[in-house]
Amino acid sequence: MKVAHFRLCHSRKPFVIAYPGEAQEMVLDAFVQALSFYGGVPRRVIIDNPKTMVTYVSRSKERIFHPRFLALMNHYVMEPVACTPAAGWEKGQVENQVQFLRGRLFVPEPAFDDLEALNAWLRLRCEDLAERPHPEQQDRTITEVFEDERAELRPLGRAFDGYVEKTVRVRSTCLVQYASNRYSVPSRFAGHHVSLRAYAGRIVVVSGQDVIAEHRRHFTRNISYFEPWHYVPLLDRKPGALRNGAPFVGWELPEAMHRIREHYMAGKGGDREFVDLLLLAQDHGIEVVETACNLAVAQNTLRLPAIINLINQLVEPVITPLSDACAYPQLTLRPEADCKRYETLCSAEEVAV
Rank of each mutant, 00 (worst) to 15 (best):
R217T: 02
V205H: 01
F219H: 15
S184C: 04
G201E: 13
P228Q: 07
K238H: 06
A241H: 12
R188I: 05
E262L: 11
E287W: 03
F219W: 15
R272A: 11
S187M: 01
V232S: 01
P247H: 04
M265H: 15
L280Q: 13
I307F: 05
N181W: 07
A281I: 00
L295R: 09
N294C: 07
S172K: 15
D236G: 12
H218L: 03
L278S: 00
F219T: 14
H215G: 04
N222L: 12
T220F: 03
Y199T: 05
L253V: 05
Y199F: 15
S195F: 08
E262P: 00
R237G: 01
E255L: 11
V232F: 01
Q299G: 03
W251Y: 10
P233R: 05
A292C: 08
Q209L: 09
S172M: 09
W251I: 10
I308P: 00
I311P: 00
P247M: 01
W229N: 10
H218R: 14
Y199D: 03
R182K: 14
T291G: 00
H284F: 13
Q177L: 02
A266R: 15
V289T: 02
F226K: 09
L234W: 06
H218A: 08
G245T: 09
G240D: 10
E252T: 11
H230G: 03
K238T: 06
L242N: 10
Y199E: 05
G285M: 08
L310I: 12
N181C: 12
P247I: 02
Y178F: 13
Y178M: 09
E214L: 12
N309S: 10
V249F: 00
T301K: 12
N309G: 13
Q299N: 14
L304F: 13
R272G: 01
C293Q: 04
N244R: 13
I223A: 08
E290Q: 10
I311G: 00
V206E: 13
R197A: 10
I286G: 00
E273S: 14
S180N: 14
V205A: 02
C293E: 03
L277S: 02
S180F: 15
L277F: 06
Y183Q: 02
A198V: 14
G201K: 11
Y264H: 12
I212Y: 03
F274K: 02
H263D: 13
H263K: 08
L242G: 10
F248N: 03
Y199V: 02
R216H: 10
I311E: 01
V289I: 08
S172H: 11
G240E: 14
H230K: 11
S184E: 00
A296Q: 04
V297F: 09
G250P: 11
T301E: 06
H284Y: 14
K166N: 13
D276H: 14
M257S: 12
T291Y: 03
V288D: 03
S224W: 05
Y231M: 05
T301D: 01
F189T: 06
R237A: 12
R303D: 15
A198S: 13
L196G: 07
N309L: 08
K268R: 14
E214D: 12
R243P: 00
Y264F: 15
Y199L: 09
E262G: 02
V205K: 02
V170E: 03
V249C: 05
F189M: 06
V206C: 09
F248M: 05
A266C: 06
Y231N: 07
S224R: 14
D271Q: 15
R243A: 11
T291L: 09
E290G: 01
R171E: 15
